[in-house]
Structures are given as structure tokens and as C-alpha cells.
Simulated assay, not measured.
Amino acid sequence: MSLRAAWPERRPEPTARRQRPWGALALLALTGIFLIRTGLPDRPGGPPRPGPTRAAPAAPAPAAPPLPRSVPDRVVIPALQVSAPVIARGLDAHGAIEAPPSADTRVTGWYRDAPTPGERGTAVLVGHVDSYTGPAVFYGLGGLKRGATVEVRRRDGRRAVFAVYSVRTFAKDRFPAEQVYGSTGRPELRLLTCGGSYHAGSGYAGNVVVFARLVTPRGGHPAAGAP
């Protein structure tokens, strides 16, 4: 898996994006996500884990209409006191989603071949859970509760606000790609990091996945409805 230290150059927003079928990509992509970790062997208990009451499938609020495409710049999660830059990531030579640079564990990555946050479809943000120096940007992800908000600030000035409706941990060897990545026909967001039990040598056994739905687009240009 590639961990690049340099930030990618900003590029003009594409008029059309390449379409990749999640079914063919997802399992390979997740092999990279669990490698984001290095683990904190001296930290008792490890990062928070989702409880059974947080796995309910019910949505917290009606979905908002989709927004046009615009690259994300920052993700804000008030409940975790997270405000982090977002950079675009692609796939590495092994077909895995590139992790954010290991030199800065406070940065998150957006998978650029998926929808942008707020577009119709499922946008994906990934982040480190920890390092040998301490908790990283998504360390507290497993502790998010249903109804918590995730705000993604976009390059067009809009703020796409999502409400969490489920937080799950999935074993990396039984990852339900279609359930996580598949489109619901609405603007949704997935936040991913490492999770589950930690074993020296093999790392975390699973991935924490936050499921969230667009509920309030704010600011920017006049709101656009669904095409």
C-alpha cells in the first residue's frame, strides 16, 4: 500500500468522473484501509468500539436532495472535536485505497473515483485510527452515536451536513462491500478506519464504518435539486 508524504496538487473539477463498479473494487480497496493502523500497544482498551445500540438501521432524519459535484476540503465532526483537511486519494498498485500520508495522521482522504460528499450516491472518507505517537484523526469514530452530525465543507462553498444512522465494525475478511459502498439512491457518506481487536504483527482485525445520510446542505451557491 502506498503512503505518500506529498499532498497532491489541486486539479480542476472534472466534468465527468470515471465509473468503477463497487462490487469489483471494494474488497481490494478495504485491504488497504486496515493497513492504515500501526496500533498503540500501550493504550489499554484501544479506540472506542460501536455498541449494539448504535447499529440500528433506522435513519435519523429524512434525506436532503443531492448536490452537484464539488471536491471536499474539510470534514468536521463536532462530537469528536474533529476538524480535518480532506485530500483526494486514488488506488495504489495493489488496488487498495491510498491512505492519507503517514506523516500527518490528522488528515483524511476522500476516494476520488466515488461521488463527492453531497452528490447522489455513496461518498467515502478514510482516516488513520492511531499511530505510535497517539490517537489519530478517526480514533473516536467507533464511539459516534446515532444522530451525530458530520459536516463536509466543499470547494463550492456549500457545507454538506450528514446525520449518522449506524456505526458498525466488520471483520476485514468478511467485509460486506455492497452494503457499505453500494448506492442507496440518496446522498450518503461512509467514514472508515481500522477497528476491532488488535494483534501485534497482523494489526487490527476489522474496520469501523460510519453510515450517514445528507440532511442539510448549507451555504455556497443557490441550492440545486436532484437532476
Rank of each mutant, 00 (worst) to 15 (best):
31 T>N: 04
33 I>P: 00
128 H>D: 05
116 T>F: 15
37 R>Q: 11
37 R>I: 06
55 A>H: 12
191 L>E: 06
148 A>R: 02
153 R>K: 10
92 D>W: 04
215 V>T: 13
10 R>I: 07
67 L>I: 15
219 G>T: 10
99 A>E: 03
117 P>V: 14
222 P>R: 11
44 P>T: 05
147 G>S: 06
18 R>E: 13
180 V>K: 05
47 P>E: 06
2 S>K: 00
104 D>P: 04
204 Y>I: 04
81 Q>W: 02
49 R>F: 06
19 Q>G: 09
161 V>F: 00
187 P>M: 15
131 S>G: 13
59 A>M: 15
145 K>H: 08
28 L>S: 15
31 T>W: 00
98 E>I: 14
59 A>S: 11
92 D>Y: 04
42 D>M: 09
74 R>V: 12
51 G>T: 15
91 L>H: 01
138 F>A: 08
74 R>N: 08
153 R>M: 14
26 A>T: 03
174 R>N: 11
38 T>P: 03
158 R>V: 15
77 I>V: 14
53 T>N: 12
53 T>A: 13
142 G>F: 04
20 R>K: 03
144 L>A: 07
4 R>K: 09
20 R>L: 06
108 T>H: 03
97 I>H: 00
3 L>T: 14
130 D>A: 05
134 G>I: 15
197 S>D: 13
112 R>C: 08
162 F>V: 00
57 P>V: 14
223 A>Q: 12
16 A>S: 14
207 N>M: 01
152 V>W: 15
176 P>E: 01
161 V>Y: 05
195 G>I: 12
61 A>E: 10
128 H>R: 02
7 W>S: 08
148 A>S: 06
82 V>G: 02
212 A>H: 05
168 R>C: 09
136 A>M: 12
113 D>G: 00
41 P>A: 05
208 V>P: 08
160 A>I: 11
148 A>H: 06
22 W>L: 10
167 V>I: 13
98 E>A: 15
155 R>W: 06
166 S>L: 03
136 A>D: 10
148 A>P: 02
15 T>G: 11
221 H>Q: 14
78 P>K: 03
188 E>L: 05
213 R>H: 10
123 A>S: 13
192 L>K: 01
53 T>R: 12
106 R>K: 06
164 V>C: 00
87 I>W: 07
95 G>Q: 04
12 P>K: 00
190 R>V: 07
67 L>K: 10
76 V>Q: 02
191 L>A: 03
8 P>E: 09
131 S>N: 15
224 A>Y: 06
1 M>D: 09
67 L>T: 11
194 C>K: 08
99 A>F: 01
33 I>D: 02
207 N>G: 01
117 P>Q: 14
177 A>Q: 00
193 T>R: 01
188 E>A: 08
193 T>D: 04
143 G>C: 11
52 P>S: 13
79 A>H: 02
78 P>L: 01
25 L>V: 14
199 H>P: 01
166 S>Q: 02
172 K>G: 01
77 I>G: 04
127 G>P: 07
58 A>N: 09
196 G>W: 09
82 V>K: 03
